[in-house]
Design a protein around this nucleic acid. Structure first.
Length: 895
RNA sequence: GGGCGGUUAGCUCAGCUGGUUAGAGCGCCUGCCUUACAAGCAGGAGGUCCACGGUUCGAGUCCGUGACCGCCCACCA
């Protein structure tokens, strides 16, 4: 048997294979543990995948999100948790319907041609063929989700739960139906919620229009409006009751221009005396504020637009025109009649449909709403009481801000694709029956001519329920007992209100009596945005979108994951860095080659098997004590960092450990032993294998593919378990920490670096060995003598002498506080270069010394600073004095 | 109109409760194809931490003001 690993690291060759293996072996599928079973005793860690749209394709945001989730889940799984990660897709009402309608359009068909049932059937077919491509992409990324539990928000069981929730909320008086101003998208031809409206600054105009007093055309009121076309629906003009200018007009009527309809002058707080003339037109059917004013004053509501925002029959001569066409015509007509008094520039925000960017029309229509306040109150409390904790913490503030100013949620959509509202209209008496299943007869009149509500629910209605519906709610299931609440939610801030806040409201409401708490998750980690290299937001329009699958294929999934993790510091956006990704591919390559190096020696010597335990005789040399101590330190740091979601810290720690310490120093140090006698090599390899295996486990959550590949190779195809992801994550063992070893090793490293420095300075040929003389304390002499071959090998030295006298006068020497070292080398030195270096060094150190001295002579500092700081500074001053004195003397000698 | 975040090396970012000489990756310069790795090794240069003021023995770190960049929320005609 030998340890098989191809010569070159080719990520694509290994990644697809392991991704498939993990799925086929069902490594991440979790069976619900039976009560009393061993599995039931494990701590549980549940995570819900934010369901991507069924129409979606993977983008960098998904990749970051999934990388972070996968790191946490692999780490928790390896740390002994029963780890369940539930994937699924969202039916994405509007998005999907648009997609299919577009497809129909190419066939020259509209959904109306097809009819509702046939259209929906068509959507299901579409989903079968094209939907969920994103899940395939996720599989390529190797995310450790439980594919056996994959859900779709329109699945039968989830749809039943949606109905149940709707009916219960209705029974509780938390869902109502009514005629209100809603945001209406004239293109999608449906109502949308406040959240689905995006506001954009718009440099518009303010039109001043004169409304003559009815019966007395010498008098008039001038109003200002940004939307003259809505005047067709005016049913009053308001002035402020305290506005003395208009007292004489109270109770009089105005003649609405163009339509010549009489409208009353009313007094209402709606009118701000400071704004314009102080008089404001009131259009209850087309403006939310006017709507409220209309209710207060019992005004007529005249809807002047149809569902496509064209002027309807109430618009007189303008009927049939588009709203903006009508605006132009109206302005033209007003000008002709001398009623357009002025036009001012006025910038304001206009609302656009989040989905199609059409300007939203506030429109009076009958919709279904959730009375949100009672749900919001509890959801606010849950975060206030830290039943749910946000990372970064300031998102809690954003959350409160929104929750405390929340409006009722319009949940009905005039679409076909989605959960149809479980309400039935009686044709006879118009009573509406809300029920779990189609009622046989009308609740009120007993009539049997019932028609189901046409509207469907907002997509976010069903996704708000997922934390409990995926576990079988409303049934009382074992899954709910075990897996609810989920531990963590990782998602982007863009859906904080759409999804996160609503899950909290619904979870708290419907799971109120759950023994483990009602909240749907205990922690929320909000991840940052992935931007392009120029820190621009990625967008299709700008054409700067980076396709994760493309870069994954170019650099390897492991490298892209590591890049994302290494930059994922909470609250900071990530500028996608191709060079950095390339750097992490180099890191993967480094790991690969380190493995090949080890395997080469394992195969040469034979008879060494990796057992996963530290060999007993491991501690009798410095480098082993050192690397073991470092490994444990690093394990401690990584575990701590991941607990705090410091992916960057965790990744950087394990990176510099593996490359900077394990490869650069440890492997170099043990090389002679590996090539020495077989006994010696076996002993070295046993320990090397132990450290390497632990390092692989440490790396595994970040780079699951390469670590899996090497880990299996390490065991020559006979690993102790099916996957490295099922082994235990390294923990910090305090007994393995060894400060002495770390300090001793640091000193030797410093010595070696200083010698290398001297050699570089003198341009000593790399192949040529030199002698060194060292002046230092007895303990250092002892340490160096014990590790002499290590020092000489790594510093390219053939003779090491300890001398009792100071080496300060030596031309070719370096010094630290602990030692002086000089090169035995006959070559002349470059006086100019050396002078420059020494001067620079001197100039750097002098101000440090004077600064430190000044502080030490400051009584305030001495009395107030903690002792260890004062001591540290004293020591520093001593060291600096020595160093500066030496530098000065060397400079003098060179002259 | 409210609220939030950022400004540290040429570039992208760390720097956790204030404490010895501010770090990393990439890029740059010098020298090495040293049989694990040139996707590498060794060495090096490079920063008045946006500005001003304050608190403190001590500020990249805390407070205030300003500048610049960015984000979110919002029914002022």
């Amino acid at each position: 048997m030998s340890h098989e690993l191809p010569k070159t690291y080719d990520p694509s060759a290994i990644e697809v294979r392991w991704a498939e293996y993990w799925i086929n072996e069902k490594l991440f599928s979790v069976k619900t543990p039976e009560p009393g079973s061993d599995a039931a005793k494990l701590p549980v860690f549940t995570l819900l995948l934010p369901p991507p749209n069924v129409t979606g394709r993977l983008h960098m945001g998904h990749m970051l999100n999934q990388t972070e989730m996968d790191i946490i889940m692999r780490w928790r799984r390896m740390s002994g948790y029963l780890t369940l990660w539930v994937p699924g897709t969202d039916h994405a009402g509007i998005a999907t319907q648009m997609m299919v309608e577009r497809q129909l359009a190419t066939e020259g068909v509209t959904r109306q041609n097809l009819g509702r049932d046939a259209f929906i059937e068509r959507v299901w077919k579409w989903r079968e063929h094209y939907g969920g491509a994103i899940l395939g992409q996720m599989k390529r990324l190797g995310v450790s989700v439980d594919w056996d539990r994959e859900y779709f928000t329109m699945d039968e069981n989830l749809s039943r739960a949606v109905t149940e929730v709707f009916v219960r909320l209705h029974e509780q008086g938390l869902i109502y139906r009514g005629n209100y101003i809603v945001n209406w998208c004239p293109r999608c031809q449906t109502a949308i919620s406040d959240l689905e409206v995006v506001h954009e600054d718009y440099a518009g105009k303010l039109y001043q229009i004169r409304y003559p007093v009815s019966g007395d055309h010498s008098q008039s009121l001038t109003i200002e409006t940004t939307r003259p076309e809505t005047m067709l629906g005016d049913t009053a003009v308001a002035v402020n009751p305290r506005d003395d200018r208009y007292k004489a007009l109270h109770g009089k009527k105005l003649l609405l221009p163009l339509l010549n309809r009489e409208i009353p002058i009313i007094t209402d707080e709606l009118a701000d005396p400071e704004f314009g003339s102080g008089a404001v037109k009131v259009t209850p059917a087309h403006d939310p504020n006017d709507f409220q004013a209309g209710l207060r004053n019992n005004l007529l509501q005249i809807n002047v637009m149809d569902e496509q925002a064209r002027i309807n029959e109430n618009g007189g001569p303008y009927a049939g025109m588009d709203r903006y066409e009508a605006r132009e015509k109206i302005l033209h007509d007003l000008t002709q009649q001398g009623l357009l008094v002025g036009i001012k520039d006025h910038s304001y925000a206009i609302g656009k449909c989040d989905r199609c960017k059409t300007i939203v029309e506030p429109r009076l229509s009958t919709q279904w709403f959730i009375r949100i306040q009672p749900l919001a109150d509890r959801a606010i409390e849950a975060v206030e009481k830290r039943e749910i904790v946000f990372t970064p913490e300031n998102y809690a503030k954003t959350y409160f801000e929104w929750m405390r100013n929340i409006h009722d949620w319009c949940i009905s959509r005039q679409l076909w694709w989605g959960h149809r509202i479980p309400a039935w209209h009686c044709s006879a008496c118009h009573h509406i029956t809300v029920a779990r299943t189609a009622p046989a007869s009308c609740q009120q009149c007993g009539g049997s001519a019932l028609v189901q509500e046409n509207d469907v629910l907002d997509t976010w209605f069903s996704s708000a329920l997922l934390p409990f519906t995926v576990f079988g709610w409303p049934e009382k299931t074992r899954d709910l007992d075990v897996f609810y609440p989920t531990q963590l939610l990782i998602t982007g801030f863009d859906i904080l209100f759409f999804w996160v806040a609503r899950m909290i409201m619904m979870g708290c409401h419907f799971m109120a009596d759950h023994p483990q708490g009602s909240v749907p998750f205990k922690e929320v980690y909000i991840h940052a945005l992935v931007r392009d290299a120029e820190r621009q937001k990625m967008s299709k329009v700008k054409g700067n979108v980076i396709d994760p699958i493309e870069v994954t294929e170019k650099y390897g999934t492991d490298a892209v994951r590591f890049m994302l993790a290494s930059m994922a510091s909470p609250g900071t956006d990530i500028a996608f860095s191709e060079s950095r990704t390339d750097g992490y591919r180099a890191f993967a390559n480094k790991i690969w080659n380190a493995a090949r190096f080890m395997f080469m020696h394992l195969d040469r010597v034979g008879g060494v098997s990796i057992t996963g335990g530290a060999p007993k005789d491991a501690q009798n040399n410095l480098e082993n004590r050192w690397i073991l101590s470092r490994l444990n330190h690093v394990a401690g740091t990584v575990n701590q960092s991941l607990t705090e979601y410091r992916f960057d810290e965790a990744a950087n720690t394990v990176y510099s450990f593996f490359w900077g310490e394990f490869c650069d120093w440890y492997l170099e140090i043990i090389k002679p032993r590996l090539t020495g006698s077989e006994t010696e090599a076996r002993s070295a390899l046993a320990f090397l294998g132990y450290v390497f295996e632990a390092a692989l486990r440490l790396l595994s959550p970040f780079m699951p593919f390469i670590t899996e590949e090497i880990w299996h190779a390490m065991y020559e195809g006979k690993p102790p378990s099916k996957s490295i992801s099922l082994t235990r994550y390294p923990q910090c063992d305090p007994k393995a920490l060894n400060n002495d070893a770390e300090q001793q090793m640091a000193l030797i490293q410093e010595l070696i670096v200083n010698i290398r420095n001297l050699r570089a300075e003198l341009k000593v040929e790399p192949k040529e060995k030199t002698g060194v003389r060292i002046h230092a304390g007895a303990d250092i002499e002892k340490l160096v003598n014990e590790n002499r071959s290590m020092l000489e090998r790594l510093a390219n030295v053939d003779d090491t002498q300890f001398v009792p006298e100071s080496l300060a006068k030596e031309k070719i020497s370096r010094a630290t506080a602990q030692f002086e070292v000089a090169l035995v080398y006959e070559q002349k030195i470059d006086v100019a270069a050396e002078t420059e270096r020494l001067t620079k060094e001197l100039n750097k150190n002098k101000p440090l010394l004077s600064g430190a001295e000044a502080r030490l002579s400051n009584q305030q500092f001495l009395s107030k600073a903690p002792p260890h700081v004062v001591e540290g500074l004293k020591k520093q001053v001593e060291e600096l004095r020595v160093v500066i004195e030496r530098l000065q003397r060397r400079l003098d000698e060179l002259k």
